[in-house]
Design a protein around this nucleic acid. Sequence first.
DNA 1: TCCACCAATCTTGCATACAAGCGAATTGAG
DNA 2: CTCAATTCGCTTGTATGCAAGATTGGTGGA
Lengths: 211, 211
Amino acid sequence: MRLGETMLAEIFGVSRTRVREAMMKLEARGIVHVSARRGWFVVEPSADDARAAFHARKVIEAGMLMAVGTIPQPALAALRAHVREEEDIVRSGSVHDRTCALGDFHIHLADALSNPLLTEIIRDLTARTVLVSMLYQSVDDAASSNADHAAILDAMEAGRNAEAATLMAEHIGRVEGGLDLSTKPDPLAGLKEILSPAAAARPSVLTRSPS
Amino acid sequence: MRLGETMLAEIFGVSRTRVREAMMKLEARGIVHVSARRGWFVVEPSADDARAAFHARKVIEAGMLMAVGTIPQPALAALRAHVREEEDIVRSGSVHDRTCALGDFHIHLADALSNPLLTEIIRDLTARTVLVSMLYQSVDDAASSNADHAAILDAMEAGRNAEAATLMAEHIGRVEGGLDLSTKPDPLAGLKEILSPAAAARPSVLTRSPS
DNA sequence: TCCACCAATCTTGCATACAAGCGAATTGAG
DNA sequence: CTCAATTCGCTTGTATGCAAGATTGGTGGA
């Protein structure tokens, strides 16, 4: 999926300079990469890259849950509200909406439990794994993920943070397990929907750039 | 500490375009920031930023040790060699060499235990906390840090990963505790030495850019 | 008919030129 | 003497121009 500088410059009505800047920012976040004198491409993570991203998420998100002390009541309530909203979207939303809602849970969790720095790291890692899911034709068992989120939140509300951490690691492992990392990726499987203009009109914390 | 584009362009014999690109890469990694039409500056993390960076390191590095299974013998041997080298440098090296050697331990550890993605994240976070240490006049108890590293490695060699994780969290907490986060930072405390040409001649995994 | 080679075209990489804005120094008034 | 306002210079922000390289289409030969 090639992203030509000139093309993007025309689409957005800016000069190539600004397009290049934006691309290099995205490159630093691991979303696109540049092939010398050939152009910019949305990254197509290898199976190893995919495993690395899921492993990093397990380590960081479980570590975060282990490290946190008591969680403020309002934060728990906000997360519970998100999970409930998630449930609705899983039932009736589009693939894109489901993907965003499920990803947002992890980011909101990080935001509630930790600091902006870790949240940003988790945001980029989540975006990476979402990309992987698109590439490797995930089974996309959204209902199961939603149930996992609810269970994690249950443990947190009960003050069993260690259990929540274990559940989180298992949950991320389950998402990874739903992928077929043995076959070659299908380059354009679901990317078009994720990156479509219609999708851009419904922003998510996943696609929002760090402030 | 201002970094003029023109000045850097002359020093490195390239055009401002390339300097700007490099600066924006560094900005994405949280090393420098740009003030509109005033120039680029090495970041001066606030006390809150400093705490966030140490917290993130605790979560990630402890989480990594918790998640790892059995560690290959050669990796342990390499780490042991590093700790011994570290001991020599702590005894006889300059402040700069000590800082780099102590930081390198964490990066080599990540490299041995985990994947390139996590290693890169930890590298940037470590660079950030080193910057903080320079700014906030750390007590710089290098010998104590070296002993901590040895103890962490002891636990790993004995297969007590959970204990290693705890020790790591305590170690990072100790480094953080050695800082005086209540006073205003001294902008140029030790930065000049770290960023000096002489220092650049002795590269470290800390300063090396991600490949 | 198929393959190899060559040229034309398109793309990025990099430097330079111009515009816009912030800051410091100077000048004037109180 | 002090303080404020204005102007000048230096810095970044942005666009454009040119060169190097890769890809693709065409052509010639086997």
